[in-house]
Amino acid sequence: MPVAKPEPARKNAFQSTDAELSRKFLYYMALMREVEERIERRLYRQGKVLGGVYVGRGQEAIPVGSGLAARPDDIFFPSHRDLALYFIRGVTPKQVFAQYMGRRDGLTQGRDGNMHMGDLSKGLVAIISAMAASVPVAAGAAMALKYQGKDSVVFVYFGDGATSRGDWHEGINLATVQKAPLVLVCNNNQYAYSTPLDKQMACANVADRAPGYGMPAEIVDGNDVWAIYEAAKRAAAHARAGLGPYLIECKTFRMTGHSAHDPADYVPKDLFQKWSQRCPIQQLEKRMLDNSWASRQEIDALHQQIKQEVDQAIEQAEQSPYPDPSELLLRVYENEA
């Protein structure tokens, strides 16, 4: 049980860098949770989002911990469960809602849906739907940073299922041979659509694959944002020092189906039960309270503020126009406006 601390100590704790970072963690994790709740449980069900919806519920610690460990000049290749990376880089909830609703203010102006979005000016590369295909591309981006003499690194995100694809192996092999500054972040949520891990691979951990490429790897609690942050710092330092790629395997659980249309009947109910006790947001809040990094009222106020921010963003996104059919043929090639 947390012991009540005298006021001066609390004040110091509150002002510490740990406290400040924790509040950042909480803000981005809670924002991601709230935005995805609205998309999956309201807008999708209301028919306002028509295409696929893939959320990262219960996995928010992964993009937030790693994303805040990165430098602003590092490059992200997010997966479809890493929405927080976009917020960290300054994409707004309004743009995300507009993206899901196929509106002009979405990052792809209605040309692609859901998490299929990117903005090179913010160091965000749009995912390739068949996820492992991002790994060679990220390897090439990392090789380019080295070519240019920069000390930025590339963070590439993928799920456990992606590690079964040839592209994953080809990309890592090339990156390790080239000692490219690449941080590989695996969201091991134990299911690839309906396929459990033991049907996906015969080794126990994704990290077990790393020695085959001469690459260091570590396994972290995917629901502990602080642990992910520390691991990502280590990984980025390794890559930045010119030592090549580094794999972080975040063990977590997918607290949803693969997508909004999937009730996940194939997942044993007790697994959801068990992992719901380990919600990364609740765990962080507990740690913040225990360390007097924030009070309950402050945390509640933050959630309240996020709800309002999200309400407003949805309202604005719904006012964003649909793209005009006359735009259909534009920008297949350069100089087509």
């Binding site: 990220a138 090439g140 592209d167």
Partner: peptide, 21 residues
Amino acid sequence: DTPISESAIVGAAIGASFMGL
């Protein structure tokens, strides 16, 4: 000189082009 990995070769080319190469 790359490993025998056509997908990695083209993928890496795409990634490098995003960085201005």
